[in-house]
């Protein structure tokens, strides 16, 4: 498990332990990865973060088109051997996104239960004094590189 900020470690450890998650990714709504577990290649993180944010954006638009008064919330894909839980949650730093990949040793119900607890823990643990940073286009790649270096302990591969 790697986290950009130490206060995230405890809530994420709880989520991983209780949900038996195989992979996990926490990112801001703008796609900046703030924590990851289980990924070994930074390229995978970049791809998963982009795809996850894209799926949520798509379902939010779908909700709007079909007249849903709110977003659909979580998106779940359940395959034969593993599933994906993808959901936004609000924090003092703005809206974040969590992605959890789980296997048959867990279940949607367990992941949902412990993801909700994780989101609540993050809301409590997050320092509220820091405003979310504005990610400008010209700084985005550098921000991404810095994040990935911190999350993988080296240069992005």
């Amino acid at each position: 498990m790697r986290v950009l900020e130490p206060w995230l470690a405890e809530p994420l450890t709880g989520l991983l332990r209780e949900s038996s998650a195989r992979l996990a990714l926490v990112m801001t709504a703008s796609g900046q990865v703030v924590a990851q577990h289980g990924f070994t290649r930074s390229l995978d993180v970049m791809a998963v973060a982009a795809l996850g944010a894209g799926i949520l954006a798509t379902t939010a638009e779908l909700a709007r088109v079909v007249g849903s008064p709110t977003d659909f919330g979580a998106v779940v894909h359940h395959g034969e051997s593993q599933g994906i839980w993808l959901a936004p949650f609000d924090t003092p730093r703005g809206r974040w996104i969590g992605l959890v990949v789980f296997g048959r040793e867990s279940s949607v119900g367990l992941v949902r239960m412990f993801f909700d607890r994780f989101a609540a823990d993050v809301r409590v643990a997050a320092p509220s004094d820091t405003q979310p940073r504005e990610l400008l286009a010209e700084g985005f790649e550098r921000e991404l590189d810095d994040s990935l270096r911190a999350l993988f302990g080296g240069a992005p591969r």
Binding site: V108, G109, L110, R112
Partner: peptide, 26 residues
């Protein structure tokens, strides 16, 4: 029990049925 989700329920308000379902299924 395949996914630990509630299909139908009848419970007191204090009972967290979603958690009951997830934990019982496990």
């Amino acid at each position: 029990i395949d996914d630990g989700l509630v299909i139908a329920e009848s419970a007191m308000d204090i009972l967290p049925t979603a958690e009951v379902a997830a934990l019982a299924a496990a």
